[in-house]
Design a protein around this nucleic acid. Structure first.
Length: 490
DNA sequence: GCATGATCATGC
DNA sequence: GCATGATCATGC
C-alpha cells in the first residue's frame, strides 16, 4: 500500500491537502494516474451516467487513495471526517448549491435512535470535508472544475446555532419513524435537516417499515437541504455575494421552538390595521406596491431586506393573505409560471410542482377585513403540504392538466364592453379542483390560435402548445377555498 | 359575490 | 427586461 500524501488522522491536514484541488478539473486528477487509451477509458467511465462511480468515488480512489471502509463509518475514520463532493451552480442572482447533501440512509430494518446525540447520523455529519465543483450541465461531468474546499464542523462556534435546529429536525424525523409514520415523511416537515427520497425513480419503490409492518414507505435519507447548502456556500465558503440578516439570536434558537418564535414575533402586532403598521414600521403608506405586506412581515421579524438567514436555510417562503369578512381569502395564490413543453414531458413524482410542494415550507400571514373594510393583522402559521394530500388529490389534479394539454386545448374568443379581447379556454377550472388550478400569469395576454394573433402582449407573454398554438403563460394557483381551510385556525 | 382571465408594481 | 408576488376587473 502506498504512503498517503497527507495525514489522514488530522482534519486540518486533510483540508490543507484538499486545497490543492482548487482550480483543477476531474480530468486533471485522472491525468496524474493515467495516460493514453487508459485515460480515455476511465474518463468515459466517470462520464457515463449509468456507472455507479460518482465524482466522489473518483477523488476517493485517485486523489485521497483511501480504501473504502464500511459505509457506517466516516470516510477518514481516524479524523472522524466525511468526504462530500458536491456541485454548485451560477445563476443570474449569484451562486447556489446544486443539490441537497445526502448524509446517510434513515434505517428501515432496525431501530432508530430518538436523539441526535449518539445517533449514527451524528458520526456522519459532525465533520464534513466539502469539495465544491462548478457544475455546468452542458459539459461532461469530468470537465467540471473544483472551485472551493471547506471543512464543515457542526461543533464549531459558527455552526453552533444551526446545531440546535438540526437536533430538533432529527428528533422530528426520528419520532415520525418510531410512530410508524415513515410513509408520511416529507422534506418540508423539518428545517435544515431533511428526510429526502433516495434513489433513482425506479428505486423509489416502497419498503416495509421497521416500526409499522402494515404500511410500506419510500426509502429516505437524512440530508442537509439544498437551501441550507446554498446558505453555507454563500456565507462560509464564498462569502460576500449574498447578504443575509438573521431573525434569531443563538440563544433564541437554542431555547424555544423555531415555529413558535416566528408566530410569537408576529403575534405581538395582531389586532392592528395595515395602515397603523405601515406607519409604525416606516413603510411608505402611499405605496401601491402589491408586496407591501411582505415587507411589513419582514420588518416585524426584525429585518430590513427580504433575505432572512433562517428562511433561506429552511426554505421558508412568506405568503401574505387578505381574507374577506366572510372568511374566504380574496385571491387564490400564484406561483411561478410553468413551461408547457416541460410540463407535459414530466411525471408527477419528478415534476417541478411535486418537488416544490414537497420541499417548501410556507409562512402564511393573514390580514382580515373588519366591519369598516380595513384589513387587520390576524396572525400567522407555518405550513407544509401533507405528503399524502400531494400524492393523492394533488397528483390527480396535476395529471388532469397534463392530459388536457396533450389532448388539446380549445379556445373561445370574445370581447368585453371596452373592446378588449378575452380568450377563454377549456382547461379544468378551479371549481373542478380542490387544491390547485391553472390560470394566466404574464404581463399581458397574448395568444396565437390557428395562426391568428390575439391580445396585446408579445412573444414573451406566450407559451407554446403541442399543436403549435400559443397561449398566455400559465401558472399553478392554490385555490383560495383550500387556503381558507388551512388558515381557519389562525 | 364569485370565477376566470388580465394585469400591475417591484427588485434584481 | 424579466421573474415574482399579488391584485384588479368584468361577466355571469
Amino acid at each position: 500500500m502506498r504512503k498517503l500524501p497527507y495525514d489522514d488522522t488530522n482534519p486540518a491536514d486533510i483540508l490543507k491537502y484538499s486545497e490543492e484541488l482548487i482550480g483543477k478539473t476531474f480530468i486533471d486528477i485522472l491525468k496524474v494516474e493515467f495516460e493514453g487509451e487508459e485515460l480515455e477509458k476511465i474518463i468515459s467511465y466517470y462520464n457515463n451516467p449509468k456507472s455507479k462511480g460518482g465524482l466522489g468515488n473518483l477523488l476517493e480512489k485517485y486523489y485521497y487513495y483511501y480504501l473504502p471502509n464500511s459505509k457506517s463509518e466516516p470516510d477518514f475514520l481516524e479524523a472522524g471526517t466525511e468526504l462530500k463532493v458536491t456541485p454548485y451552480e451560477k445563476t443570474k442572482k449569484g451562486i447556489r448549491a446544486g443539490e441537497r447533501l445526502v448524509i446517510t440512509m434513515i434505517p428501515n430494518t432496525e431501530a432508530i435512535a430518538s436523539k441526535f446525540k449518539g445517533s449514527h447520523l451524528e458520526k456522519k455529519i459532525s465533520k464534513i470535508l466539502m469539495v465544491w465543483y462548478h457544475r455546468v450541465k452542458s459539459q461532461p461531468r469530468t470537465n467540471n472544475t473544483i472551485d472551493f474546499v471547506s471543512l464543515y464542523d457542526i461543533y464549531s462556534e459558527i455552526f453552533e446555532k444551526d446545531l440546535a435546529v438540526i437536533c430538533d429536525d432529527y428528533y422530528k424525523i426520528a419520532s415520525k419513524v418510531r410512530e410508524g409514520k415513515a410513509h408520511e415523511l416529507s422534506e418540508s416537515d423539518t428545517k435544515y435537516l431533511g428526510a429526502c427520497t433516495k434513489g433513482s425513480t425506479a428505486d423509489k419503490s416502497l419498503q416495509p417499515q421497521f416500526y409499522n409492518k402494515n404500511i410500506p414507505a419510500k426509502r429516505r435519507a437524512f440530508s442537509l437541504k439544498q437551501s441550507y447548502m446554498t446558505y453555507v456556500l454563500n456565507n462560509y465558503v464564498k462569502p460576500g455575494l449574498m447578504r443575509y440578516e438573521s431573525i434569531f439570536s443563538k440563544e433564541e434558537l437554542e431555547n424555544v421552538d423555531f415555529d413558535k418564535q416566528i408566530i410569537d414575533k408576529i403575534s405581538n402586532y395582531v389586532g392592528f390595521s395595515e395602515e397603523y403598521l405601515y406607519t409604525k414600521f416606516s413603510l411608505n403608506t402611499e405605496s401601491k406596491s402589491k408586496q407591501i405586506n411582505r415587507s411589513l412581515v419582514y420588518r416585524i421579524l426584525g429585518i430590513n431586506s427580504e433575505n432572512a438567514e433562517e428562511f433561506q436555510k429552511a426554505n421558508i417562503v412568506v405568503k401574505t393573505i387578505r381574507v374577506k369578512k366572510n372568511g374566504l381569502p380574496k385571491e387564490s395564490m400564484s406561483f411561478p409560471k410553468i413551461e408547457i413543453s416541460r410540463f407535459i414531458e414530466e411525471d408527477f413524482e419528478n415534476s417541478f410542482e411535486y418537488t416544490f410542494f414537497e420541499e417548501t415550507i410556507f409562512l402564511f400571514v393573514v390580514f382580515k377585513e373588519n366591519e369598516e373594510g380595513k384589513y387587520i393583522l390576524k396572525g400567522s402559521k407555518i405550513w407544509n403540504m401533507p405528503i399524502t394530500e400531494l400524492e393523492n388529490t394533488g397528483k390527480l389534479e396535476w395529471e388532469s392538466y397534463k392530459k388536457k394539454f396533450i389532448s388539446g386545448v380549445n379556445f373561445e374568443i370574445g370581447y368585453d364592453k371596452t373592446g378588449k379581447v378575452i380568450v377563454k379556454n377549456d382547461l379544468p377550472k378551479k371549481t373542478e379542483h380542490r387544491i390547485f388550478h391553472l390560470r394566466p400569469h404574464a404581463s399581458k395576454s397574448a395568444y396565437v390560435i390557428k395562426g391568428i394573433k390575439y391580445g396585446n402582449g408579445s412573444d414573451k407573454d406566450m407559451d407554446i402548445l403541442p399543436n403549435g398554438d400559443k397561449m398566455t403563460h400559465q401558472c399553478f394557483w392554490l385555490n383560495n377555498g383550500y387556503i381558507s381551510d388551512i388558515i381557519k385556525d389562525i
